[in-house]
Simulated scan of single mutants.
Amino acid sequence: MEDKRCKVCEEILPDSGSSFFVACKNCGTINHVGSKAGPLLSLMCATSALILYVPANLLPFMSLEVYGNKNTATIWEGIVTLSQGGSWGIAIVVFLASILIPFAKLIILFYLGLSAKSQGQQKLRTRLYNIVEVIGRWSMLDIFLLAVLVAVMKMGPWAHAEPGAGAWIFALVVIFTMISSAAFDPTTIWKNTYDKKS
């Protein structure tokens, strides 16, 4: 079995045991090394995120109080309001970052976790995994936008904004999605093929 090396300094990594991550003794970089529990953990986290995705989009994402009038809105209501106000660009970004991309990523992770030990369609599953890796950097965009909006709206006694239940649940969706993505070991896609050939 080939030794796993650090992604930064290429030092041979110590045995990770059952851990998904191991620190390099030479440079201290945290390396993802995967484990036998990876596909199962990835599938469980993707399933949890999919379940939480529904209330995250149905419950109020933010409440805004201006001059004593309090309004709450879900993510979708916020997108509709932005588009009706003529801010189509922002509405599209929020739709992509908050609804479409997270859902697509969760469906892909769920499929990858479910089919991790199956044979066939390795190229398709590898492409799907690469898509997840590319769009992963956008996972926290909507939470970041909310934080910026809340910071901007803290304008003293006449305006106040705070995250709603939907925002907190969506943060959990993001966390479970990140764990699912990190736990999935892409080598499992091709492992059965190599084992069959050897």
Rank of each mutant, 00 (worst) to 15 (best):
I90P: 01
S42M: 04
R125T: 03
A116Q: 06
V148H: 01
I175V: 15
L149C: 05
F110E: 03
A56F: 08
E2T: 12
K196Y: 12
A116Y: 03
A37C: 03
L82K: 04
G89P: 09
A161M: 14
G156Q: 06
Y53G: 00
N57T: 09
G38E: 07
R125G: 01
L112E: 06
K105H: 05
T29P: 02
T187E: 15
I101E: 08
L172M: 12
R125C: 04
L13G: 10
K117G: 09
T81P: 00
I30Y: 10
A159T: 14
A165V: 14
F184Y: 15
H160Y: 14
W158C: 01
Y67D: 12
N192G: 11
L100T: 13
F103Q: 01
R125H: 08
S35E: 11
A104R: 02
Q84E: 14
G166T: 09
P102R: 07
G136C: 08
P60E: 11
S139L: 05
L41P: 00
F110K: 05
I175C: 08
I143P: 00
I179E: 03
A104N: 06
A182L: 13
M44P: 00
M155V: 07
E77W: 06
A182Q: 11
I75A: 02
S48G: 14
K36A: 10
N192V: 04
A167M: 06
L82P: 02
I12M: 04
K154Y: 09
T177D: 01
F110C: 11
S115M: 15
I79E: 08
